[in-house]
């Protein structure tokens, strides 16, 4: 029993470290990317997996809390893509256009049809 707890604790620490690295990279992406949509891409993906991994790591180190931590993980996994989708849609409809190296935009005609 003791050895199992020991092993779980090390696995948990690994997950915590990995998650915090991803959180850091997500924030770096938010800072460095050239426009809103690319920032959303970097921010959403990296911060979702980063937060999930940190929370799971704590859950492995402290198994009594695991149920509630899994609820947090599920909630982050559902809510984070939804909010980034809502932000992307809102800002496109408000007229903020993405940065293109070579223009490729199917959505513009859809918006024009709706008006």
């Amino acid at each position: 029993m003791d050895t199992l707890n020991y092993i779980l604790e090390y696995i948990g620490l690994f997950f915590v470290l990995l998650g915090s690295i991803f959180l850091f990279l997500g924030a770096l992406g938010i800072y460095r990317m050239p426009d809103l949509y690319n920032r959303l891409q970097a921010g959403t993906k990296a911060s979702t997996l980063g937060a999930m991994s940190v929370v799971l790591g704590v859950g492995l180190m402290q198994p009594n809390w695991l149920i509630k931590l899994i609820v947090i993980i599920l909630f982050i996994g559902i809510s984070n893509p939804l909010s980034s989708h809502a932000l992307a849609r809102a800002s496109y409809r408000r007229g903020i256009r993405p940065f293109f190296k070579k223009k490729m935009d199917d959505y513009e005609s859809q918006i024009r049809d709706e008006r």
């Binding site: 891409q41 990296a46 199917d106």
Partner: peptide, 26 residues
């Protein structure tokens, strides 16, 4: 796919040249 996505983002963010070519497809 999620883990792959994260390493993909990490690779792009760390690279000083920011290798991106964005577009909207349907």
């Amino acid at each position: 796919a999620l883990v792959k996505a994260n390493f993909d983002v990490a690779k792009r963010v760390i690279n000083p040249k920011l290798p991106i070519n964005p577009g909207i497809v349907s």
